[in-house]
């Protein structure tokens, strides 16, 4: 099963390598990884997407927690959460295909962020499946390059009434 795990770590050099190294050393699957700062300067948040059976995921969580520079591990899969990925897709176009592509972009509520005579660069945000669906639809126009951030996620909050 696919798991999205959010990890708060010390904002120090080498932490990223420690986590990447752990996954390769223990043979865990690493389907996606993204990292960025948080509201606290001394803390970074890594979002990892992995898959495996319950026993493996339990080990992933425990092994991550064992790292000294890991402050908190949250398996968001077990909780209601918001997940997003951002992708930039550079697709080939000409005067005939441009408007068709723009229609697709509109349907996906994506944006065109760069345009040239022969290409369009599209920015899309959404869950991983949506990003993948757009890429699939654009494929036959000829995709030049794709850059994806990998998923980031936060737990949903509910206001108690």
């Amino acid at each position: 099963m696919r798991h999205t795990i959010s990890i708060l770590v010390e904002n120090k050099s080498g932490v990223f390598t420690r986590i990447g190294g752990l996954f390769s050393a223990r043979g865990f699957n690493l389907d996606g990884i993204s990292v960025g700062p948080t509201e606290d300067n001394s803390v970074s948040r890594l979002t990892i997407v992995t898959h495996g059976n319950d026993k493996i995921i339990e080990q992933v969580n425990k092994q991550l927690n064992k790292l000294i520079e890991v402050i908190k591990v949250i398996d968001l899969t077990l909780e209601d959460h918001v997940e997003r990925e951002l992708a930039l897709i550079k697709v080939s176009c000409n005067s005939e295909t441009r408007s068709e592509i723009m229609q697709i972009v509109n349907i996906f509520r994506a944006n065109i962020v760069d345009i040239s005579a022969r290409t369009l660069t599209i920015e899309v945000t959404g869950i991983v499946d949506k990003v993948q669906a757009l890429i699939n639809l654009l494929r036959h126009f000829g995709i030049r390059e794709v850059a994806r951030t990998g998923a980031i996620a936060l737990k949903r909050e509910y206001e108690r009434t």
Binding site: G14, T17, R18, G21, L22, A25, I68, E69
Partner: peptide, 13 residues
């Protein structure tokens, strides 16, 4: 530190 990262409980540079 790179070489010993997976074989120490923790390491520092």
């Amino acid at each position: 530190v790179g070489i010993t990262r997976p074989i120490t409980k923790h390491n520092y540079l």
